[in-house]
């Protein structure tokens, strides 16, 4: 399962296509680097919500 920022989603999809895979992808807002603790909290919450959806199948 891949947690990717929205900017890098095309890269993940292109790679998955080349390898004939269907990626389990959780997309969060870009960027992750350079964020302070408060900003990062939003990304963590988004990733966790996406993961819970994946867990439900």
């Amino acid at each position: 399962m891949v947690i990717a920022t929205e900017t890098f989603r095309p890269l993940v999809m292109a790679q998955a296509k080349a390898r004939k895979l269907e990626p389990h992808l959780i997309v969060v807002k870009h960027p992750v680097g350079g964020l302070n603790v408060t900003e990062l909290e939003e990304r963590i919450n988004a990733a966790f919500e996406g993961l819970k959806l994946e867990m439900k199948g």
């Binding site: 399962m1 920022t5 890098f8 890269l11």
Partner: peptide
Amino acid sequence: IALLALGD
């Protein structure tokens, strides 16, 4: 299960 971080 692996959770991969990919981004910047």
